[in-house]
Amino acid sequence: MFELLGIAPQALFGQLLLGLINGAFYAMLSLGLAVIFGLLNVINFTHGAQYMMGAFVAWMLLEWVGVPYWGALVLVPIIVGAFGVLLEKVFLKRLYHLDHLYGLLLTFGLALMIEGVFRKQFGSSGLPYANPLPGGTRLDFMFLPNYRAWVVVASLVICFGTWFLIERTKLGSYLRAAVERPDLVQAFGINVPRMITLTYGFGVGLAALAGVLAAPIYSVNPLMGSNLIIIVFAVVVIGGMGSIMGAIVTGFGLGVIEGLTKVFYPEASNTVIFIIMAIVLMLKPAGLFGTPK
């Protein structure tokens, strides 16, 4: 077996795969944040809690109703997305005319409430979720678990599907137009308030879908969302929220960098993304894909 800088290839590729998977979650979550922010001008602090809810609803469907993983993949985004629509109709709708920071504070409060309820109900030690794709493939340089390969492929499909939907379809063109000039789009006879509601539901559904994908990898834990959302915020600051493709590339890229840091300098693996954020702020304050405003 060859060695690279004194690191066994098993460890290197193993961490690379882990990094790619973390990156997949960064990408999916920052994508949802960007879509929501584009139309609603709200930074959705509840995003992490909604990701956690996705994992929990999948667990409940499996344990209580007997719906398998593949069914959950379809049902969970709809259930949690509907919950998001409810939040938008009851709370967020009333804050659009105010400063952005109220949207942040409101969603922060909602995130605390959701996390608190789940911690009360399920404790904070985490619940196991059976792997729907056990086994794996032995490659020359590493062992590739089937489920992890599936997560990478699925997240790529989801990310590029979203990109296609927004950048290449008629619906997406309405959406992009409403980001620029909601009043004009409304004047052309499109129901913009409903579009905003559904966009929020879509973003939340995306977070929940990521949660289902995460359930068999990480244990289903009420804290999984708040741990992740702060990193995703840093990812969003690095990438800038102006571009869908930027969010995808930044998410995957940072995941891989984080994985490599675990191999070469593990002490910094928790902080590397924040350090990159600091460097990007010094060199390109608007973010890698952002435009200065």
């Binding site: 920071l101 942040l104 702060i230 924040f274 350090i275 954020m277 702020l281 304050p285």
Partner: peptide, 24 residues
């Protein structure tokens, strides 16, 4: 670092920097 961005980004940058201090 944080004053290089405005509004909502300022909040996210400070949160991320604080998380870095937390891990430290």
């Amino acid at each position: 670092l944080a004053i290089r961005r405005q509004g909502i980004y300022f909040a996210m940058v400070t949160l991320a920097l604080a998380q870095m201090v937390f891990f430290f």
